[in-house]
């Protein structure tokens, strides 16, 4: 059996420590975690848009989008909504507690389609969690990209994630940040209305030289994609990331299948062109 024990088992998660956590908004918590094995922590490389499988022994395992950027190695950041068995247990964990992770999985955003182009990033609600990864990646490698527009819509000011960070970003001259909430209150300093309303603030672009990225709740995709199409952005230059049930993350368990594709291997990032062929995608 020694030979068997030597096999790298892709299902075996590795121990990681919660370095720091704080609440983003009610029932949404930010976690910084790091592999306990320091070598693993420093060598863990990933692409924006990829995800990890996180385990709490005895409770289960679920996929989580990585919210940090690979340009800042060592620490992985997750934004987690308290919504099921696993997240309920995760919310009981404190700093320095141990969780188990494996990955990274999935294809991630297609960076080669973004370099030397204008970039429009549109986030709705929790979709901002994986998009934060590409956002910081772009800002850390700012000279590789042309103009960058970041549009983010939440339902209310109280549901706006990463408020401090994103409000500060507004001061930067090299990125245009546009924020909105469906229902505002007296203190909300930005726009009111659905995220598609922000498109009117985007100046003229050359659609062939633009890549668009959108992540949000399933209902949002159609409306945002319509705006991209109005801007004449080619369908294969619109990237979106999808959520599915997953049990393995590596194309074995079948749960995330969409026709013959597996969201965990062939996605979670697809182009709008892909979704026209795979009608179940969105």
């Amino acid at each position: 059996m020694t030979l068997l024990e030597a096999i790298e088992n892709p299902f075996k998660p590795k121990a990681a420590r919660i370095v720091r956590h704080y609440d983003l908004i009610k029932d949404h918590r930010f976690f910084q975690i790091r592999h306990i094995d320091m070598k693993k922590a420093m060598s863990f490389s990933y692409n924006p848009g990829q995800f990890i499988m996180l385990s709490i022994p005895g409770v289960g395992e679920s996929p989580f989008s990585i919210s940090s950027t690979p340009s800042r190695p060592g620490i992985l950041e997750l934004g987690v909504r308290r919504v099921g068995k696993l997240t309920e247990s995760l919310f009981q964990k404190r700093d320095n507690d141990v969780v188990y992770i494996r990955g990274p999985y999935g294809n991630g955003f297609k960076l080669d389609k973004m370099v030397d182009r204008d970039l429009i990033i549109v986030a709705g609600g929790l979709g901002v969690i994986p998009l934060r990864s590409i956002l910081y990646y772009v800002l850390d490698n700012r000279d590789q990209f042309k103009r960058v527009f970041f549009l983010y819509g939440a339902r209310t000011p109280n549901e706006f994630l990463f408020k401090t960070e994103f409000f500060q970003l507004k001061n930067r001259k090299d990125i245009e940040c546009l924020y909105t909430v469906d229902k505002s209150d007296a203190e909300w300093p930005h726009a009111t209305g659905v995220v598609t309303k922000l498109f009117k603030n985007i100046p003229e672009i050359d659609p062939r030289e633009t890549t668009a990225v959108v992540v949000g709740p399933p209902v949002m995709y159609k409306f945002v994609i319509d705006e991209f199409l109005k801007l004449k952005i080619p369908k294969n230059q619109i990237q979106l990331s999808l959520e599915r049930r997953m049990k393995c993350g590596i194309g074995k368990c079948g749960h995330c299948a969409i026709e013959h594709l597996y969201t965990c291997m062939d996605g979670p990032v697809f182009t709008y062109w892909d979704t026209l062929h795979f009608r179940e995608l969105i």
Binding site: I56, V59, G60, K85, E88, S89
Partner: peptide, 11 residues
Amino acid sequence: ISRLIHGAIPE
């Protein structure tokens, strides 16, 4: 029972 007494939600 084991999930409940260990503070986890049953499946």
